[in-house]
Design a binder for these strands. Sequence first.
DNA 1: AAGTCGGGGGT
DNA 2: ACCCCAGACTT
Length: 378
Amino acid sequence: MRRDACKNAVRRSLLHWYDRHHRVLPWRVSPGDRARKASRNQKNSCSVNAYHVLVSEAMLQQTQVATVRAYFVRFMEAFPTVEVLAAADEQRVLRLWQGLGYYRRARHLHAAARIIVQQHGGRVPDTVQQLLALPGVGRYSAGAIASIAYQQPVPILDGNVARVLSRLFGIRQPIDATATKNQLWQRAGELVSPTRPGDFNQALMDLGSTLCTPRQPRCADCPLHKLCATRSDELPIKTRRTTPKPVTHTILALRRRGRYLFEQRSPRGLWSNMWQLTTAEQLIDDPVNWIKERFGLSVRAPRTLESFIHHTTHRTIRFELLTVAVQRGSTNGQTQWRTLDDLDDLPLPNPQRKAIKALLATDKEVEPQRRRERGGRQ
DNA sequence: AAGTCGGGGGT
DNA sequence: ACCCCAGACTT
């Protein structure tokens, strides 16, 4: 009984706060817009944006709202409907995802779009069970799409919500433990508003990202202050921590008549299906021999350009960038010779973009010299 | 239950 | 340096 009263107070306070302070986001239909559309009796006023919600949720996985904004807008301009996305080349989808990270998400979203068109008549499914069957859609995303796009009273649990609920209820167990997560899912399920589930879930996330932040939460401004068991940043408790492993990758940029050799990475693992200059995921002591063995090409001494560090969650990668001039060399389906001013269609990981920038800088130095030399002889 | 998968924001 | 982010998937 007391728990029910508390529950209602949380819902009321949070939704009231959300109505006044919700963030305005490109993929979000504000409560006012929805009411206006409903009053005009527009068909599908909620379900038409389910595709927008699907795309945004894919982009937002482990990625901050501020980062996603521009990517979402560009993506929707390129692929305005689920049909357009389903018909697109994966290469183009990856290119629009370039720089966002976790590239498997893009391929999953693309595959999901094709399933939605082929098996669901182009309509994003509206049940958690059907949503969970889509690639790249897990428990969180299924709940988010069902509640936000279809007003279904189902919970969500992401990093924000876990932090807010752990503080609100004073949950002192580590939130990265499976048992704690299950407990939090249950509490979220009991708490979710039956009348405005989408707004309620988004309100929890907005609260977590603007007031109930990991450090220095603004408890004085919090609508749940009087209901909160913690009112500080002493919760949540986390246990997991991993230190990145230091490794070296060697980029051997093969150059032939102003073009560089690009190869596509494997469909699995890091930067899956993205493109790169010929790169070995180790330190190459003897580049000449390595090229001989790998490509069957005899080359003169390579030139070392630069070395730089790239950080990912699990690795600290030192990239060694070398260039090698070659006289010949073939291509197959996984490789292409490209000029550096014609790469707009190739999805490239950030460190590769950095390497290409360095190549462009040195080409600018080298080219005029050669031209002068040729001119001098003539 | 632990590991893998990116890159940027904030402190 | 470190933690965190509208997680999902594999092992």
